[in-house]
């Protein structure tokens, strides 16, 4: 994995299941806005109406397989980020969600099958590519990212990356 940024994120885990689609992350009826706080107000509302009130800045969202399947709406990772989620950990992600999250500077980590329990304290070490479950004393290895994604994350997202580089390099 190896993000250049030496970043260790600690937070409480909010654990959900498999195949959480973008309609459940942020329903389509709320996506037509550039006001990010409006997105955060409705984050995960059809999945867990209590999430919005319980989530603390820095908390970690944990899910199973195929997190973020469905639409291409970038409002889904934006809503999570704006609500205070610091990193999303999942067995694996749906393709567009994964790219979108990195593009907006929300770290996402794939760890395969896991047994992380709701409410547990996690430590996500982006540089070492590790997720440590502090309650269960268990460590999960994160799947490595391609170099271009690391570069985008290290810049803080695709907007910053292109502000700096002006263009993609050659293939």
């Amino acid at each position: 994995m190896a993000y250049k940024a030496k970043q260790v994120i600690r937070g409480a885990a909010h654990v959900y299941g498999d195949n959480i689609d973008t309609d459940r992350i942020i329903p389509g009826k709320y996506t037509k806005t550039l006001d990010l706080s409006h997105l955060a107000d409705h984050v995960l509302e059809d999945l867990d109406p209590t999430f919005r009130d319980r989530v603390q800045p820095g908390d970690i969202l944990v899910a199973g397989d195929n997190f973020g399947c469905g639409s291409s709406r970038e409002q889904a990772p934006l809503a999570l980020k704006e609500a205070g989620v610091s990193v999303v950990v999942a067995s694996y992600f749906a393709r567009i969600f994964f790219r979108n999250a990195i593009n907006i500077g929300l770290p996402v980590v794939e760890i395969g099958r896991h047994t992380i329990a709701d409410g547990t304290q996690l430590e996500v070490d982006l540089a070492r590519g590790e997720v440590r479950d502090l309650s269960a004393e268990q460590t999960y290895a994160a799947a490595p990212l391609p170099d271009i994604m690391l570069a985008i994350l290290d810049a803080g997202g695709l907007v910053r990356y292109l502000q700096i580089t002006g263009d993609y390099g050659d293939s």
Binding site: S72, R73, E74, N100, N103, L158
Partner: peptide, 30 residues
């Protein structure tokens, strides 16, 4: 838009992306 693969009906390689990826394409053509 996530249903962009529809153009595979024409034998095109069409992929759905989010807004920021699209913005990067608008800027660079790549």
């Amino acid at each position: 838009d996530s249903h962009t693969p529809t153009y595979g009906a024409l034998g095109a390689f069409a992929v759905g992306v989010g807004s920021t990826d699209l913005a990067a394409a608008m800027l660079t053509g790549k």
